[in-house]
Simulated scan of single mutants.
Amino acid sequence: MLYLTGERLHPHHVRAATFDRRWRGIDPAQVYDYLSRVADEMDRLHRELITANTEAERIRQALRQWQARQHNSRPAGRPAGERR
């Protein structure tokens, strides 16, 4: 099986991929070594994506808290854009 249709490609799919043997084909060891490197890179990128998403969520929450503090600290009756 080369790939699963309708499903996202994950590192374990790359590592588990198998190919039909052909008489005049490429070196299977080279193919599987390369697929292992691709899967390792996918793992690394997935970890980086999780880290970036976690950091983005932390920043979003901090921004919401800051906005709430700013909104609550405005004097009553004064529009948001008006200065003293």
Rank of each mutant, 00 (worst) to 15 (best):
Y3S: 08
Y3V: 05
G6F: 02
E7T: 09
L9I: 13
H10P: 00
P11R: 03
P11M: 04
H13G: 02
V14W: 01
V14K: 01
A16C: 03
A17P: 04
A17Y: 00
T18S: 14
F19P: 10
F19N: 07
W23Q: 14
I26A: 11
D27M: 04
D27Y: 08
P28V: 01
Q30T: 10
Q30E: 11
V31P: 03
Y34C: 07
L35G: 06
R37V: 04
R37E: 07
V38C: 09
A39K: 03
E41W: 02
M42D: 07
L45Q: 15
L45K: 12
L45I: 12
E48K: 14
I50W: 07
T51N: 08
T51F: 10
T51W: 06
A52D: 09
A52C: 04
A52R: 14
N53Q: 14
E55C: 02
E57D: 12
R58E: 15
Q61W: 00
A62V: 00
W66D: 08
A68S: 13
Q70M: 11
S73A: 15
R74N: 04
A76V: 09
G77I: 01
G77L: 04
R78Y: 06
P79V: 00
P79H: 11
P79W: 07
P79C: 01
A80V: 12
A80D: 09
A80P: 04
G81H: 14
